Simulated assay, not measured.
Amino acid sequence: MSLDDISHPARTGPDELVPSRYALRIGEIDVLVVSDGVLPLPTAMLAHNADPAVRAAWLDDMFLPPEAFDWSLNVVMVRSGGRTILIDAGLGLDPDLNLPRAGQLIRRLASAGIDLASVTDVVLTHLHMDHVGGLLVDGVKERLRPDLRIHVAAAEVEFWEAPDFTHAVMPPGFPDALRATARRFVNEYRSRLRPFDDEREIAPGVVVRRTGGHTPGHSVVRLASGGDRLTFAGDAVFAVGFEHPDWHNGFEHDPEEAARVRIRLLTELAATGEQLVATHLPFPSVGRVAVEGDHFRWVPAFWDY
């Protein structure tokens, strides 16, 4: 089934009270944003280098709870030039961290009528567990085609051989879970990995480019067709990063470089006017970037039915 066939909402089950997928087109490229669920995380993770009072004021202005709130998990399916591409794979199974509302991707792809065997390529923005775990769910590997290509930056694979969490500030349990999931993923899929150095075209108009920052091999995916453009930014951009791009996220392995990457990317997106999707922006996270004074502003797209 092509992505064209699922551009309109299908009947949802009793446990799906809100939409969990959103389709759009970038020129001749079909795009489907799929929600993998949400991660409840401490609000301090948004900005561990910020004054707590300033951070609390931002949360209050955004009508968000002061201690913890739900981070969206967005995954993207793309079809271009006869290739069907999964960009990131969600959390998968709960890694003993009490995250029961995440890891919905495989079920939601099935409800959208997407056969895992139709996926020709997987692009991973990085190897954090909420981006690769869906491929570790029991039975998934056996359903994937034997010639599946998994594209990930070579620097990312190298980093996870001996990850350095010196500059990250994560809740207890997360470092061990991240390390174990990345190790398991590389061991299980090593023969299908297609590492790249800086940039690679996956299909017509679909290019993955390494940015670094969040992790050494963190990458973004740019889509371009017929004058339309969209960037999937992975974890380079969080909701707070528009107004405070210099705030450090707790999962960033090089916070200073991550801030520089974020500012460069947002500046570019504001200049081009292209659309943006990111992993942890509120679903479906489709929008654009504007410059407002000395910071940025996220402009969510109007939903197109």
Rank of each mutant, 00 (worst) to 15 (best):
M1Q: 14
M1Y: 15
D4S: 15
D5K: 15
I6V: 15
S7F: 14
A10H: 15
A10S: 14
R11M: 14
T12Y: 14
D15I: 10
D15Y: 08
E16C: 12
L17T: 12
A23D: 10
A23S: 15
R25C: 11
G27K: 07
I29M: 11
I29L: 11
V31A: 11
V31L: 12
V33G: 06
V33E: 07
V34N: 00
S35Y: 00
D36L: 04
V38D: 04
L39T: 00
A44P: 00
M45T: 04
N49L: 03
P52D: 00
V54R: 08
R55Q: 01
R55S: 00
L59I: 02
D60C: 05
D61V: 00
M62H: 07
A68P: 00
N74K: 10
R79D: 15
S80M: 13
G82F: 15
I85C: 09
L86K: 03
I87Q: 05
L91C: 04
G92H: 05
L93H: 10
D94Y: 09
N98R: 10
P100Q: 06
L109E: 03
G113N: 09
I114Y: 03
D115K: 10
A117M: 11
T120R: 10
V122W: 07
V123Y: 08
H126N: 14
L127R: 04
G133S: 09
G133T: 01
L135M: 13
E142Y: 10
R143E: 13
A153G: 11
A154Y: 08
A155W: 08
F165R: 06
H167V: 03
G173Q: 06
F174Q: 05
F174L: 09
D176F: 12
L178C: 08
T181N: 12
R183I: 08
L193E: 07
P195T: 03
D197L: 14
I202E: 00
R210W: 10
G217H: 07
V220Y: 09
L223S: 07
S225H: 13
G226I: 12
G226N: 12
G227Q: 08
L230Q: 06
F242V: 03
D246N: 03
H248Q: 06
H248C: 03
N249W: 03
F251D: 00
V261H: 02
V261M: 05
R262N: 01
I263D: 06
T267A: 13
E268T: 07
E268G: 08
E268N: 07
G273I: 03
H280I: 00
L281V: 01
F283Y: 11
V286P: 04
G287W: 04
W298I: 04
P300H: 13
A301Q: 13
W303E: 15
